[in-house]
Design a protein around this nucleic acid. Structure first.
Lengths: 148, 148
DNA sequence: GTTAATGCAAAAACTTTGCAAACCT
DNA sequence: AGGTTTGCAAAGTTTTTGCATTAAC
């Protein structure tokens, strides 16, 4: 197994993230824990949905804090965002392996495509264009089997 | 040559579009001609940039009209949009063959990837997931050769 | 003359910012 | 205590909408 094979795993183990936070001079707050928790629970969620979920969790958290926290969590590699619609971005936890998204324009269904499945694409882009794709951000629109 | 090989060409020949417009009950207006012209000239442009360019062309066109016109032109298959940043979409003419976009996060450079180059991906998605991707809307973020 | 398209202005959707108060370490 | 984070409210950015007027057919 080459070192390169590790590129599909989550970037931080869960136990580490609080230490990582502090190592960068950041502080651990209830808001940050909560936002991370709801993103993990919701799967794919817009900032707006994260806000709503956080508020149902019985604590009031401000809108700005949600935006600022999502940005921070993304910097730490704990969450990622993708554009599943032409509107607001959706965030998801990185505890699942890196994946691209397939979105059906007809039924709106979103499915996850493991990064492994895209290895041929990665190879092609690297070889022919010297380009290193960020598959975790990739969203492919089209029509799914049911809506063909 | 199979019929399928034609899927990379522009959807409408330039001579036809005015007829297509009328066939759907739409009307040919100077604004629509102008917006289409500047999109063709600009290459990739946000609605805002289209508006600015249109206004330099010595005619005043309203913001709303630009949005409504881009939507219409896209419905007719004369333009397409892609998301080259996390902000506004960019529109481009379909007189060029269908292509995906490669965007470098470091230097911001955008390059076009012919749909042909993605045939392996298309095949894989179709075979393994029954999914028909819309490559003209696809944007792949990552790092280019120079910024590796 | 009809009906579609435009301009305008207001609102909607989404995100960011400045600053004082509150909280983490 | 000291510096980071939050809440709040206001403003910024981008897009949409309703309706009277204008223009295409």
């Amino acid at each position: 197994m080459t070192a390169d094979q590790s590129h599909h795993r989550a970037e931080l183990s869960l136990g580490d993230w609080q230490a990582q936070l502090r190592a960068k001079g950041y502080r651990l707050t209830p808001q940050r824990e909560l936002v991370l928790k709801v993103v993990q629970q919701l799967g794919h969620a817009t900032p707006d949905e994260v806000l709503a979920a956080v508020r149902e969790e019985s604590q009031a958290v401000n809108q700005s804090t949600v935006y600022r926290t999502l940005e921070l969590l993304e910097e730490l590699g704990l969450v990622r965002h993708a554009h599943l619609t032409d509107r607001a971005p959706t965030y998801h936890s990185t505890t699942n392996p890196t994946h691209a998204h397939l979105v059906c324009r007809e039924c709106g269904r979103v499915s996850e495509l493991p990064a492994d499945a895209l290895d041929p694409l990665t190879g092609l882009l690297k070889t022919d264009h010297g380009f290193e794709p960020d598959l975790g951000h990739l969203t492919i629109f089209g029509h799914c089997a049911g809506c063909a």
